[in-house]
């Protein structure tokens, strides 16, 4: 896979190119106010990170976009359509992988298609393709407990890719894997964003990770959570995966984000 982007996407996109739009989204859990009037646009074909300290409502926002939990008020639109529940246009990658422990890698990857009623031979053929794509060929009949954390998350990723949704929702997908694997994943993610024409919404609490992989970074502040700043690390996007971490602009942005977040960390 090519490590550079097909084309630099440095300009702020037109309104029509917004894949996901949240408008004044608020969420209360009983008396806990997790989100307040959060409005944010996610440009089509790009990766937007939600960055913020833990407990600031990143998972909540992602689950609301996924249609898994309702917002207390406000609206979510995916390609102009208001979200009322889970839909075929969105696929989720879970922080804890959420694999069925009793099912093989093949069945796990095909599970999204199975739930959509795709016939067995067809869904297994599709699943096999994505198992190869994420580098797990040969592990089709293994069970999740036989895999490392990194491999399990590849299964989760393959499952999300195989349903061919426009929007990929990733909740700290690399937080449970070791540092080396994590770096490899970040490079693979850059390639994935470049090659698949999908919109990625990526939750992370790592500043470096956000700056490394994102076209747009939304910094969320706790609670009630709102977007404090949107940063577009445009200059470093076409530098190539190997050079980004040495780029002065990359380091600048990391510093700038840290400066605005540090007051919220006890």
């Amino acid at each position: 896979m090519s490590q550079t982007r097909a084309a630099p996407r440095s300009t702020v996109p037109l309104a029509a190119d917004i894949a996901v739009r949240t408008r004044d989204v608020s969420k209360h859990y009983g008396t806990v106010e997790a989100l307040r009037n959060l409005s944010l646009d996610f440009p089509r074909g790009q990766l937007t990170s939600l960055l913020g300290p833990s407990g600031c409502g990143k998972t909540t926002l992602l689950k609301i976009i996924a249609g898994l939990i309702p917002a207390t008020s406000g609206q979510i639109e995916v390609s102009g359509k208001t979200v009322t529940g889970p839909g075929p246009d969105r696929a989720f990658v879970f922080q804890d992988f959420a694999l069925l422990p009793w099912a093989s890698v093949l069945r796990n990857v095909a599970f999204g298609l199975e739930l959509r009623g795709v016939a067995r031979s067809e869904r297994e053929a599709i699943a096999e393709k994505y198992i190869r794509d994420v580098g797990l060929a040969g592990f089709e009949t293994s069970y999740p407990h036989q895999l490392s954390g990194g491999m399990r998350q590849r299964v989760g990723l393959a499952r999300a890719l195989s349903v061919n949704a426009e929007v990929l929702l990733m909740d700290e997908p690399f937080s449970a894997v070791d540092e080396q694997t994590r770096r490899k994943f970040q490079e693979d993610l850059l390639a994935l964003v470049a090659n698949e024409n999908k919109t990625f919404i990526f939750v992370t609490h790592s500043i470096e990770e956000a700056v490394y992989v994102s076209d747009q970074i939304a910094i969320l502040l706790p609670r009630p959570s709102r977007v404090s700043e949107v940063i577009r690390p445009t200059g470093i996007r076409d530098k190539g995966a190997d050079n980004i971490r040495r780029d002065p602009e990359y380091l600048d942005i990391v510093d700038r984000i840290w400066a605005s977040l540090r007051s919220y960390v006890e």
């Binding site: 898994l68 959420a98 599970f111 999204g112 739930l115």
Partner: peptide, 12 residues
């Protein structure tokens, strides 16, 4: 997380 996963992939 397993039931949420199934719901997010459109399980009835």
């Amino acid at each position: 997380s397993l039931t949420e996963m199934a719901r997010s992939f459109l399980g009835s």
